[in-house]
Design a protein around this nucleic acid. Sequence first.
RNA 1: GAGCGCGUAGCUCAGUCGGUAGAGCAACGGACUUUUAAUCCGUAGGUCCCGGGUUCGAGUCCCGGCGCGCUCACCA
Length: 531
Amino acid sequence: MSSGVPASSTVPDPHAARREKLRKLVEMGVDPWGGRLDGIASISDVRAQLPQVKFHTEAGQQLNLPVELLSLEDVQQRQNEFRTWLSQQGKGEMVGPTVRVAGRIMLNRDKGKLRFLDVQDRTGSVQLFVGMNQVGEKNWELAALLDMGDIIAADGMFAVTKLGEPTIFVTALHFLTKMLEVPPEKHHGLNDPELRQRMRYLDLTYNEGVLPRFIARTKVVQSIRQTLHQQGFFEIEGPTLHTIAGGAAARPFVTHHNTLDLDLFLRIALELHLKRLLVGGMERVYELGRVYRNEGISPRHNPEFTMLEAYQAYGDYGTMMDLTESLILRAIEAIDGNYRRPWGDKLIDFTPPFARRTYDELFQEHTGVDPRDEAGVRALAGKIGFHTEGKHPDVIKSEVFEEKVEDALMGPVFVLDYPASICPLTKRKRENPQVAERFELFIQGMEVANAYTELNDPDLQEQLFRTQLAGLADDESMAKMDTDFIRALRHGMPPAGGLGVGIDRLVMLLTNTQTIRDIILFPVLRPEQEK
RNA sequence: GAGCGCGUAGCUCAGUCGGUAGAGCAACGGACUUUUAAUCCGUAGGUCCCGGGUUCGAGUCCCGGCGCGCUCACCA
C-alpha cells in the first residue's frame, strides 16, 4: 500500500475501532459472540496448581520452585530474587500443568511479537503469555484483534515467567465475546457513584472489592437459611400483595388489580401472614424476602429491602435473642470467621455474648432523666424541640430515646423491654403490663433486629388495633385494624417468639459498607435522561 | 419533601480574574520475544448536563430545569 494506512485503521473513536475489530473477526471466520466451551478451570484453581510447576534442568533434574520467593509481597524484590534464583539453576525450562481458563481481558500489554494479557474471572485474574512464534499464525492474528474488556478463553501451560509471575503460556485462544463499549479507566476503575449504580456490571468487574462484597451478601443469606433449617424452621413464601399493609409503621406502595377492581399494597412487613401460619401449625416458620416502604431514600434506606422474619412457637423474646445471636455469628463464620470487624475507622466486636440492657436503664444512662418521671421526660423532649402536646407519654419517651440513645448504641447490644403502648403486636410482661417483651438489636446506632414475645390474645390485639396512639397519624401507626388477622388469632396462635432482621443493614455492618446502595445490586434510581 | 455540593473527551480528573478546551488512561500509526498501571515516538478525539439571561466575549457569573451525592425529615 503506497499511500499510508487503510481507511479502516485511521478511526480514532474507540467505539468505531471496536466495531472495526468485530468486522475483522467475522471476516476471519471467528464468531465474535462465542458459545459453549467445556473444560474451563477457575483462575483460583489454576493458581492453586503453582506447586506442580517444576524447573527442568538440562541435567534432567526436576526442581521445585522457591515458593517463598514467589509469595513475596514486594513485587520488585520478588522479581529480582526470582531472577537470581533462576540464573543459579543454569539452563532448563519451566514445566507446568496444561489448563484452560476463561474471562474478561483486563490489561493488554502489546510488546511487539509478544503480548501479555491479564484475564479475570469470578475467582481472580491471571496473566496470559502470547508469543508470535508460540501460538501460530491464526492465534496471533486473533490476538491482534483483542481489546480490553473482550471475553476470551485460553489453553496453555501454567508456569511462571523469568520474573516469577504465574502465567499461562498460551497455545490456543478462543474468542468468546466482543466488548463494543469502552471499559472504565484501568487504574481508577469507575468512580462516578451514579454510573456505578446504573452500570453495576461495570462496578462488579472493574472496581476492587465489589464482587467480593456481593458474594459475602450471598454467603450471609445462605448461612441464615442454613442455620434456620438446622433449627427446624420452614421457609415459606407469603403474599407480597396485601389488602392491608400491616405489621409495621410505614407508608406502602399502592397498586391496583384490574379484574377485582381492588387497590392492593406492596407488603411493608412479613409479620401478620407468618403468624397466621403459626395458627396453622407451622410451629417454626420464616420468610426471607423483599418488603417495600414508600419512604425517603438515604444511605441507610432503599424503597425495597430484604427482611428476615422468623417465628417460633413456645418461645419468647429471650429465645429470639439467642436465635439472633447465633444467626449473626454463623453468618460471620460463613464470610471469614472474624468476630472483630472493621467499620470505617472503628471496630465492631461481635464476640458473644452480645450485651443485654434494658430500655429504661439506657434511657437513664444517656439522658440522666428517670424514664418513669413523665414530667421530666416531657420537659427533656421540649428542650430538644419536640412537640409534646396531646402525645402519649410513651410516645414522647420513645422519641427522646431515638434522639438521645439510639445513635450512641455502638453495640452490638440488645435493648430490652420497651414501653408497651408503642408495641401493639407484643405481649406485655405478666408482672408489669406497662412493659412489652420486645428487644431491638443495635449496632453502630443502627437497628438491625427487632423481636417480640408475640401477642396471641385476640381480644387484646383487637383492642390495641382499635386504640389509635395519641398524636400519631394513621400511616405512622402500627395499629391498623386487620379483622382477618384477629379471626386467625381467635382460632388459637400458640405463644411464640418472633424476630425481624434487616438483612441489608446486617450485611452492611458485616462487610464494612457505609451505604445501603453498595449492598443492593440495583438500588432505586430515577430513569436516565434520553440523550 | 428541604438545605448544601457536584455534572468538562468512552473512563479518571485539571481548568487561575470571564478571553475562545487540558492531562493521564482508552483509541489509531510506528518500535520492542519476559511485560505486569509496560515503556518510547507520533496522530486523532469536546452538545463543557439541558434551556434561558448578563456580557464585546460564558466551562467560569445569574435564573430555571434534569441527574447524582451529602445532611435533615419520614423510615428499618
